[in-house]
Structures are given as C-alpha cells and as structure tokens.
C-alpha cells in the first residue's frame, strides 16, 4: 500500500513541476472557456431551457469541461503505448507487486496534480465571475471532489485500454484516431450529452464515457446520487476489464518475447 501511495506522490510531484506547461494550460482553458461561454450565452438569449438545462447548468458544464480537459485527454496519453513499443514496459513485469495498480497510482498522482492546479482554480475563478451552479454545502463540494477524482480514475482506465492496443499493433494511433471524433462527441466535449436526440442520449448514458465529464457536471448541478453511482460502477467494470487485458497482454509478451 505504501508503495502505491509513494507512486501517487511521485506522479503528483512530477506533474506539478511543469510550471510553464501549467501556465499555458490555464490560459488555454480560460480562452476556450470564454469562447464556449459566449456561445452558450448566445444560445440561451432566446430561451430559458435547452433539453432541461438552464443557463447556469450550461455554464457549469462549460467550466467543468475546461477544468477536466487535461485530465481526460491527458497530454501523456500515449506514454504507456510508447513504453510498450520500446520494450520498456517489460520493467513493470520485473517488479514485485501489481502492475495495474502501479500504473493507476502514478497516473492518478499526475491527474490529481492537474485537478489541484488547473481544475480547482479554473472552476473557482469561473464561479466568482459567472452564475455557475455549484454545490453550496461542504458535503456537496466533497461529493463534487469525489466525482472529479472518479473521472480521473476512469480516464486512466480508458487511456490504459487504448494504450494497450500497442501490445498488439504498432499502429495503435491510427486505430485510436478512427474512433476519436466519436469519443469526443459522445463523451460530451462538444455539447452536453443532454442535447443529444433521445435514443442516442439513452445509449450514451450507459457508456463509460459518462463518468468522464457528464457525471461530474451532474454532481455539480444537483443530481449527485445517480451520477456518482454510474462512476463507481464503471470504475469497477473497467478495473476488471483493464486487468483482463493486462493479463492477456502479459501472456502474449511472455510467449512472443518483448
């Protein structure tokens, strides 16, 4: 357990040491956040609600999106795949303990750093300047915090699966690029999933993309219970899936040579 905590801390420190990247990231989030805010204000000029969301919900969505952007689409997205291709991943098989937990701990350390240095400041400033709908109680804020951390965990679990493609093909990036636009749209990074036509929305609500962005948005805007439950369920499912894939991949590596 201490080993995994040490990895978490190392990941956190590693990510926090990139000051310039942090400044650039905050600026990017601010810029796109302002653009999106303007777009949604325009959308809501003529009406009070769109697909059940009012303007406060929409603005909350915008700034949670900006805050989580670098967590979900982590800049180190392909590091695992690259380590697999270069053969360096084998080091993970030569260490005692659990490789999946080790990777999760280190990655979570990094995403927690992003949550602390980017997500929280971005949301705080936005909440001070704009009418967002954020929890007003300490308990509510704690639930939002938990939801953001769960989003980070699911983000790792999904990135792990995409990176694992490198065990089977050197062309893992092309494979991902094929599905990327769909993932981007369906996870709610263009418009809230609530805006989708009924059947599509119902389908997406049952997908592992919900925990990434829409669940934290829903926790922030008031529907905490079901959203958190969805996140926890997906963490558990992806945990099993990720470990199964890792077991298959290790088996393959050990048979065919790294």
């Amino acid at each position: 357990m201490r080993a995994y905590l040490a990895l978490l801390r190392a990941g956190f420190q590693r990510q926090t040491s990139y000051r310039l990247a942090l400044a650039a990231g905050l600026l990017t989030n601010a810029f796109f956040g302002v653009v999106r805010t303007a777009v949604f204000y325009a959308l809501y000029r003529e009406r009070d609600q769109v697909a059940g969301l009012d303007v406060a919900d929409a603005l909350t969505y915008v700034w949670v999106l900006e805050g989580l952007f670098a967590v979900v689409w982590a800049p180190w997205f392909w590091e695992l795949a690259e380590a697999i291709r270069s053969g360096e991943f084998v080091a993970e098989l030569l260490r005692p303990g659990d490789p999946y937990l080790r990777l999760l701990a280190f990655d979570l350390g990094r995403t927690l750093s992003v949550l602390v240095t980017r997500t929280v400041p971005t949301l705080t400033v936005a909440a001070l300047l704009l009418p967002l709908r954020l929890p007003a109680t300490l308990g509510g804020l704690a639930l939002l915090g938990a939801s953001l951390v769960l989003a980070a965990v699911v983000s790792f679990q999904l990135r792990f699966l995409f990176g694992s493609a490198a065990f089977w093909t050197p062309d893992y990036r092309s494979l991902f690029m094929l599905v990327f636009p769909v993932l981007w749209l369906l996870s709610g990074f263009v418009v809230p999933v609530d805006f989708f036509p009924g059947p599509l929305r119902a389908l997406v609500d049952w997908s592992p993309l919900i925990p990434l962005l829409m669940a934290p948005v829903r926790v922030a805007t008031g529907a905490a219970g079901p959203a958190l439950a969805t996140q926890v369920a997906w963490v558990a499912l992806l945990w099993l899936g990720g470990r199964a894939v890792l077991a298959l991949a290790s088996r393959r590596l050990v048979v065919h040579g790294g």
Binding site: R2, A3, A6, L7, A10, R95, P96, G97, R102
Partner: peptide
C-alpha cells in the same frame, strides 16, 4: 531510488 525502496519494502 525512493520508489524502489517502497516497491521492495
């Protein structure tokens, strides 16, 4: 080195 220390207890 610190991580190695933790991993190998």
């Amino acid at each position: 080195f610190e991580l190695v220390g933790h991993l190998y207890r």
